[in-house]
Simulated scan of single mutants.
Amino acid sequence: MTAFETLAIHAGQEPDPTTGAVVPPLHLSSTFKQDGVGGLRGGYEYARSGNPTRTALEECLAALEGGSHAFAFASGLAAEDTLLRSVARPGAHVVLPNDAYGGSYRLIAGVLSNWGISHTSADLSDPDAVRAAIRPETAVVWCETPTNPLLGIADIAALAGIAHDAGALLVVDNTFASPYLQQPLTLGADAVVHSTTKYLGGHSDVVGGALIVNDQELAEKVKYHQNAVGAVAGPFDSWLTLRGIKTLAVRMEQHCTNAERIVEVLTSHRAVTTVRYPGLPEHPGHETAAKQMRRFGGMIALQLGGGLEHALAVVAKTQIFTLAESLGGVESLIEHPGQMTHQSVAGSPLEVPEDLIRLSVGIENVDDLIGDLLQALG
């Protein structure tokens, strides 16, 4: 079996047969010459339906996630929307994590609800809670592990069994882990979604999304909706994402190493009341994370004793950690989820604690990062 690091550099990225270029060409054409009506060269006719640069990215993503089909989109939410419209009809029901990403919640509760899709939130780490949330019309169990932003962990294999017993699909948002740390399809998931903006792209310079599946029938449904709706990844976005993926393995190792060092410091700091990180033995999902993940990731959530005002003061004081939304880039970011990425869940059962701070730990020198956090915490 070819190793992950090798697949990241070579899958879907053979040298150009015409020139020998080792980097896949950037195909900017919006349309392709046909050799007679229906005589397509390589299967390409119009760039919404397919583009060689996008194909290279999709082949690489499928290989990294252990899937047979991958689809690249203009954003992670475009991938989510396409999948849900492919498998759920009006009257269908979705089970969500009780600490889901705010954008996913907004899509399902604020957009797809108008299309007749209902939802129930549940603690996905509790099998009994998941079973209780499932209804006869449940089409999808939607999982994040680790969750955004509370770093909750769910047992993917166990959830797959529960979902399949109910005739539902298990979809796993693998953005926080990346395929380097975790491959949900190998654990029984039916589909994996990513915001490729994050760890896969890795450089905060491209927005994109991806969906990877193994089932042929499901792949055909997704492909139809991808083309019909049209929220596809552009060729330059695909090229940038491919470039980022080449270094995914080495970046993820450094993200994890830096995060582990920072967690050691935060857990002993007097101003910090709670540190949420799956690598901590006291984390309720630690054993499950250790079983299904290679390492524990570069995301950390913490809570402070001073409440909202203290949290806002800390995120304003960092100098190396940049106050910004998003995550997974080479640079370290800090944010206040309640008033930034998760503002859309305010007042809902998914509302996050007001003193919560989320860190996306980059690959800078870890001593510099620790010093920055210590001066900000005071």
Results as ranks from 00 to 15, higher is better:
P337M: 12
L64Y: 00
G67C: 11
I9N: 03
D237L: 02
I320R: 15
P15L: 07
T318W: 03
H93L: 05
K198I: 00
V22F: 11
P15I: 02
D205R: 14
A129H: 06
H286C: 05
E58N: 04
A92V: 07
A177E: 02
D368P: 00
A189N: 03
T186G: 13
P97Y: 10
S86C: 11
H203F: 14
A189Q: 02
G306T: 09
V87S: 08
M293I: 01
T19D: 05
R89H: 13
G202L: 04
K221A: 14
V94N: 07
H255I: 04
P97Q: 13
L187D: 00
A166N: 10
A70L: 00
P149D: 08
I162A: 11
E264M: 10
R270F: 07
P353H: 04
V130P: 10
T186Q: 15
V23F: 06
D35V: 14
A228L: 14
T55C: 01
R41W: 12
G76D: 01
R89K: 15
Y105A: 05
N174L: 06
A132C: 02
V22S: 15
A271Q: 15
T145Q: 04
D16P: 05
P24M: 12
A160L: 04
T274R: 15
D372A: 03
Q216W: 02
K221H: 08
D372E: 08
G39V: 10
P337K: 13
H336T: 12
Q343W: 02
E217M: 09
N98V: 01
I212G: 01
E5A: 15
T322N: 06
E282M: 05
D16R: 07
D368K: 11
L373K: 01
P349E: 05
L350T: 03
L373F: 05
I108T: 09
V352N: 04
V315F: 06
G209I: 00
A157C: 08
W239T: 03
H342G: 02
L159F: 03
A191H: 09
L26I: 11
D355Y: 01
A168K: 07
